[in-house]
Design a protein around this nucleic acid. Structure first.
Lengths: 148, 148
DNA sequence: CGTAGATAGTCAAGCTGCTTGACCACTTCC
DNA sequence: GGAAGTGGTCAAGCAGCTTGACTATCTACG
């Protein structure tokens, strides 16, 4: 593969990621959740199963603990999450989604499904599955970071 | 496709895009170009063929003209681009790459090729071609925006 | 035990990249 | 040739992140 092709692929990947983020965000806003930014959604993804600590969120987003702490504080103010004492460690606090937070997470999933569906109509359902498999092999599990 | 699958695909896409950006950036730095940020690379991509105006760059990056103007100013200071009078419009200025800018662009292409090659070793060359085709169908030509 | 060092989290200050608003120079259109 | 539109810059402000310093708690080792 030539260098220029690699660059074209990179640009397409970035463009797709950017567009997807924007569509999900718009879908979430359209469903009535205001004051949320895309980064919040990725924090939700980490918090969703059983809650997480500020440090976990920081690692997941690839930012400092301080930045994650501010983000959590903002989400608390807006009612999407709440801080509870950590069962095993008195230093730590477990950040968990509120019912509003869960509703917002479901809204994001619906918006993502809408966007993916729109793409599937263009390139085909099978290609989307192949895309998913390919991407899963490429970026197994790392922090979700801004594209730049 | 279920909502949770769509979310998983989205997360994988974002993670891949973030990782790719980071790898290209590291590759460019490793080749000796300092003081460049990922956003600069995407400005280069727009400037590469024949130069472009500040407004073109702004549209390409999805930011305001003022932000693009500052970015160009920074690149001028660092020697990657230069402003020339526009041949057809005395209001406009044509921003073109210097030799250093071209060298940096080539470095970015090499770094992108390295990253793509590493992925191809994991998922296969054919899958990468399919990925490229799929992404090209999905995000034909829009502004390249940060993933969030 | 108890004390030294590591870890979770917050507070505070500062910086960077972006935005909005105002403005000038030039072009286009009637 | 005047009015509206467009390309670009200057200036001020803001949002989100960083580094640095600090407290509270946990862990490990003598």
């Amino acid at each position: 593969m030539q260098n220029s092709e690699a660059m074209a692929l990179s640009a397409a990947l970035l463009a797709a990621a950017g567009e997807l983020t924007q569509r999900i965000h718009e879908g979430v806003v359209a469903r009535g959740f205001e004051g949320v930014r895309p980064a919040h959604g990725f924090a939700f993804a980490r918090l969703a199963p059983d809650g997480a600590t500020v440090g976990d969120v920081a690692a997941h987003l690839g930012v400092t603990k301080q930045a994650a702490s501010q983000l959590v504080e903002e989400l608390v103010r807006k009612g999407y999450v709440e801080r509870r004492p950590h069962p095993d460690d008195a230093r730590a606090r477990l950040v968990v989604l509120t019912e509003l937070g869960w509703a917002c997470t479901r809204a994001a999933e619906e918006a993502a499904a809408d966007a993916v569906r729109a793409w599937a109509e263009v390139v085909g359902e099978d290609e989307m599955r192949a895309l998913h498999a390919c991407l899963a092999g490429i970026a197994p599990y790392g922090p979700i970071r801004p594209a730049w």
